[in-house]
Design a protein around this nucleic acid. Sequence first.
DNA 1: AACCTGACTTCGG
DNA 2: TCCGAAGCCAGGT
Length: 114
Amino acid sequence: MTQPTFTEKVIELIRAIPEGCVSTYGGIARLAGNPRAARQVVRILHSSSRKEGLPWHRVVNREGCIALKSFQGYDLQKQLLENEAVAFDDSGRIDLDRFLWRPAMEEVRKHTVE
DNA sequence: AACCTGACTTCGG
DNA sequence: TCCGAAGCCAGGT
């Protein structure tokens, strides 16, 4: 039996983020078993978000900000999140205390075990 | 087939 | 608290 690769775990975890919630690059990486692999999450979003139909807009940085720049998807991402009732403050930040997805271990295992 | 790079995060000084 | 450097790794060139 083959253990799911880090990449596969990340894809499943992103897919599991519920509507109306967000997660962070580092958070996903940690759930997938490697707290320092935030950049791989970025990489995976680039390579697989379209192919796998991932809810890519539900991933933001640890400050609760959209990491994209204007005209590179920032506006689209913000709009998609607002459509899910995710609120932004005056400085374009999301209150992570309210919207961060915090799955229980059981929930995580469900998505990371083959 | 190497080398570069990225929508980041953490760590040590 | 602040800043530079390391960590991570696969897809594109």
